[in-house]
Structures are given as structure tokens and as C-alpha cells.
Design a protein around this nucleic acid. Structure first.
Lengths: 215, 215
DNA sequence: CGCCGCCTTGACCACCATCAAGTGGAGTGG
DNA sequence: CCACTCCACTTGATGGTGGTCAAGGCGGCG
């Protein structure tokens, strides 16, 4: 029904404009949605974690209006689109719901990122992102004891937050100095979750996690 | 099947946390998605134009993770959720598709806004927003000759772009001085569409308009 | 007439971008 | 085993975009 492929870090899963005949599901590692600008700038718009759909879109929209790229080495399931069509038609109830879940939660996350970029200072924005990640990864059981594998470079963080890599570096050091996190050897540890979430004014509401696990 | 209500400018259509039993569809005027921050700051995350669904979400997600507020006097259709359920169950094909369209295009717009906030200077971001509006409103035939009713205050623009009202003001003046637009008496006119889109590096691709009108 | 919301303008300054140089570890080839 | 390279991270200096504070103009409306 679907095959699984390895996509190494830095490689595209799909490119803007593509009309792929597969729908992709993350199995392992991190990927991101992004757009390029004429001046060569890149803006990352979402991180995709294990379990996430990459591109349910194209079943409806026909072509991608953004690209998806692996941030770390990944394993990704390639599901033929016809399969998706069949599934949605047959089990119109439950599966349809699951697909909706996926894209609506995506949209919720996107909205929260927008708030971050628009209205949060760099330090709070970064802290907020770490909180979000902690909650998301815990819900799929890849984070334990507030610690998880984090292979994202500072450049990629910069493209995610819409700030410069230099400033990411300084902001990270600040969070470390505050005793909120550590980040070394591609491993992120949240040292004081209570203080971190308070600092970031983080409210996991928008992730709709309680329901997601139920569904 | 549904009733139509007037929601005056500045009033909420739904609030964050609500579990409304209606789904809302814009008929006239502008509304916006927004979130409030602890410090009282507001971030607008989308503008809703005539024809847009406000909150298909709640049929699935159960509660709103953001609020919706009227930016101008509006007319809005209130459709009982049961109606939506029935429609999606019966006409599983076409209607389902239409709903997907709506939310996926929403998501595309959100992504583009994120790019704007992250990587575009205030003037290009504003120009880009005006281009987007022109295209969206033209497709529902409320813009004629590059001109349309625009009742949004500079404060609301500021909350949309994630910048300050003062800076919106200065940026508007700059666009006027360049001969790109006029904005007076709540009417926005694009004087030189070619130059405006070029300046904003605007590509309507993400709006998926061609397909939308076909569907 | 007087208030109120919205727009406008000026002065000052902070956050963050940009440029530039340097450190350090991992991998590669001689 | 030691250069050598490459990449990610780090640090410093400088400046610009845009924030904040404050005051004033201007039109609409009660």
C-alpha cells in the first residue's frame, strides 16, 4: 500500500510547484515546510514531526504552494494518492475526520507561529517554540524527561523564527544562562519546564493534544 | 437552514475557547482571526472576506483556538453545525471537497503571511497584503478597476502586519508617495498594479484562484 | 460646541541585522 | 598521524528598521 524511503538531511521531499502522485507521512526525524524568496532568503513555516502528514493538500489543491525539506535524516512513508482517495471515499467517517484533524491542527500551529513572529520578542519566541516541541514530541513519545534529540542547526532556527542566525545564537545563550535549557550534541533538554512555559507565556491549547490522542 | 445576522464593526463573531453550535460564513464586510496576548497585544492572523468560512474548525476541533472579530459592519450567515454534519455525510463528494478547499487555501494564505512577517520589510509586506486583497476581492467581484472599499484602520493593519500603528502610517505614506496606491475615505485604489506587484514580489500562486472559481 | 476616534508628525532609543573574524570539532586525504 | 577543509557555532562592532512615547491636527457625531 505504501513504501518507505529515507530522505537524508537537507534534501527536498517535495518542491514548490510539484504535483506529486504520493502523499507523504513522517515516520522518523524532522522536516519543514518552507518558501524561498527572490533574494535567496528562506522562511520555514512549520516543522513536521513523526506522525505528521506532509501534504494532504495536493489531494485537493493539485500542486504545492511551498516546499518540504528534511531537516535531519528522515524516514518517510510514500502513500499513493489514489490510496488516499479510496480511503476517504470508503470510510468517509473516521478517516476523513483524521485527515481534517491533521490539517486543522497544522493550521493552529501556523497561527501560533504567526503570533510569535508578530508579537513576541526573540527570546520568548524561541522559548515558546521549545515548549511547543516538548509537548508535541511528548505526545508521540519521542521526548522523555524533558529531553529529546534535536538536530536542528541555528541557521534553520533562524529561518524558522524569522530572525538572523547570529541573534539565534545570542538568544540561545541567554536561555542557557537563565538555566532554562541545555542544548548540546544535538540534544535539547528542558531544565525547568515550569519556568520555561511561564517565560514563554505558553498555553498548549492550540495543539489540541488531548483530543488528538483520543481520536 | 440558516439565518443571517449583522455583526457590527468591532464586535466578536466568536471568542477563543467558544464551542459554538453554528458555523459562520461571511456574506458582506471584513472580519479577522486574532489572538490576544497577556500584555494586551493583539495579533491578527487572517482577514476574512465575503464567501469565506469563519470556523469550519469547530466541527472537528470542538473549540476555537482563536477569536474572530468583525473589522467592518458585516452580514454573516449562521449555519447550524448539524447542517454541516448532514451535508458532509450526504454529499460526501463535492461538498467535502469545497470545505477542504476553503481551509487549505486559508492555510496557504497563513503561510504567506508568515513569510511576510519573517522575511519582508514593512513596506513590501504592506504592498504584498494589498496585492493579495486585490486578487481575492477581484475574484469575488467586489474590487473594480483596482479599487475597493477598505474600512480597515491603521491600528488593525498594524495588528495584521505585526508592526506598530505609527510605522504603518509612515509606510502608507511612502507607498502613496511612490504613486503606487491611494487610500482615502476608506477606499483603497491600486494606481499601478504592475509596479506594486513587482515591488512586493507578489506571486498569486498561493491563493489558488484559478481552481477556486472552477470548483 | 466639544468630545472622541483616527491619523499624523517628531524625537529618541532598542532590538536585531549585517559584516567580519575567529574557534572548534568532524571528516578526509596525504 | 597530522595537515587541511568544511561546517556549525561564537564573538565583537556598527548601524538601521521599526518601537515607544508624546503631542497635535482633523473630521464626524452627539
Amino acid at each position: 500500500m505504501s513504501d518507505v524511503r529515507e530522505v537524508p538531511a537537507g534534501h527536498d521531499v517535495i518542491r514548490e510547484g510539484d504535483r506529486p502522485e504520493n502523499v507523504h507521512v513522517m515516520l522518523e526525524g524532522f522536516a519543514c515546510r518552507y518558501k524561498m524568496l527572490p533574494d535567496g532568503g528562506r522562511q520555514i513555516m512549520a516543522w513536521l514531526a513523526p506522525g505528521d502528514f506532509c501534504d494532504l493538500h495536493i489531494a485537493i489543491l493539485g500542486h504545492m504552494d511551498h516546499g518540504i525539506s528534511a531537516l535531519s535524516d528522515t524516514r518517510i512513508a510514500f502513500v499513493p494518492q489514489a490510496e488516499i482517495d479510496r480511503l476517504t471515499r470508503d470510510a468517509a467517517g473516521a478517516l476523513n475526520r483524521a485527515f481534517w484533524w491533521s490539517t486543522l491542527v497544522d493550521e493552529g500551529i501556523l497561527r501560533e507561529w504567526l503570533v510569535g513572529m508578530g508579537r513576541r520578542s526573540a527570546d520568548k519566541q524561541l522559548a515558546h517554540l521549545f515548549c511547543e516541541l516538548l509537548f508535541r514530541l511528548r505526545s508521540v513519545e519521542v521526548a522523555k524527561n524533558g529531553s529529546f534529540h534535536f538536530p536542528i542547526t541555528q541557521d534553520e532556527l533562524a529561518d524558522t523564527l524569522g530572525i538572523s542566525a547570529v541573534h539565534v545564537n545570542r538568544t540561545l545563550q541567554q536561555l542557557r544562562a537563565e538555566g532554562l535549557i541545555t542544548l548540546e550534541n544535538k540534544r535539547l533538554t528542558v531544565l525547568d519546564e515550569a519556568r520555561l512555559t511561564a517565560f514563554a507565556e505558553f498555553d498548549p491549547n492550540y495543539l489540541h493534544l488531548n483530543k488528538r490522542t483520543r481520536s
